[in-house]
Amino acid sequence: MNKKNKILPWEYSFPSIMLIGLIVVFPIIYTIYISFTNMNLYHWTDYEFIAFDNYRRALTKLDSGFMSALLTTIIWTVLNMVIQILAAYLIALGLNAKGLKLARLYKTLLMFPWAMPAYISILLWRVGIFNPQYGLLNKIRSALGFSSMDYLSENIPAFISCMVLNLWMALPFLIMMMDGALQSVDNSYYESARLDGGGWWAQNLYITIPSIKPILAPSIIMTTFTTFKQFDIIYLLTMQKGSLTGATLQTVITYAHQNAFVSNNYGLSSAVSIVIFGFIILFSLFVNRGIREEHV
């Protein structure tokens, strides 16, 4: 390739690189810049460089609740992912069962929670399902003669409630991915397995799962990250301003929001964000390495 041909592709892609730079890279660099300043309400325009002061304060904050928020986030991510993968796999298998009538209708209906705007879904669940006065769960309880219960006022029931809602909202994506992956598996493998006496378990363990794993890996990574940085469900169900429920659940992102972004201290908030950003990068390296090793 001559010199001109080497440069030309860069020239063509320059606007796109600029755009990505402006939208993705610039905010990160600007956040890093702000994190080294004392930009806050009292120094709105006259902020100064204060070196690592904000990082020292951000790291002090890690002692006061960050570690428990991180632990909650890890438990939240692991539980959600395990249940989601298992449930989505079983449902996708069911949808691909031979002789299933109206399979397309079921698939369309299953997409519904995914298609709904998250904010609407969460508020619907909050009022329609979990509300102590109007919620479906309490209507059922009172029909059975039990007293009403506040599902969102204590941490463990609130965690389970958030998880159920997250599953409802996130499952359709994995079901769709698994459904697509299942359809790509050659039927002749199953016919051979049946001829060799392989049962349902053997077919799943030795044919289906190994065949769909490479196709599903990117979807699972994406869902893992979405679950890890989940904010909407926990915030809107339990800690929305003016509607606090009493639960004190905190994930890394809700912790960052509560401790940094309400203070109008942009220097400190940026430092906290960069520290959390570092944690997420470490998490992503860890997940990617795990996947790469599995492939090798």
Partner: peptide, 21 residues
């Protein structure tokens, strides 16, 4: 300006007492 950060802790305290017992 400090009032803007008081709503959160105040309402958390009220919810802890009234809703979480």
């Amino acid at each position: 300006p400090q009032m803007s950060v008081m709503w959160g802790p105040t309402e958390s305290l009220l919810a802890a007492v009234n809703k979480s017992g």
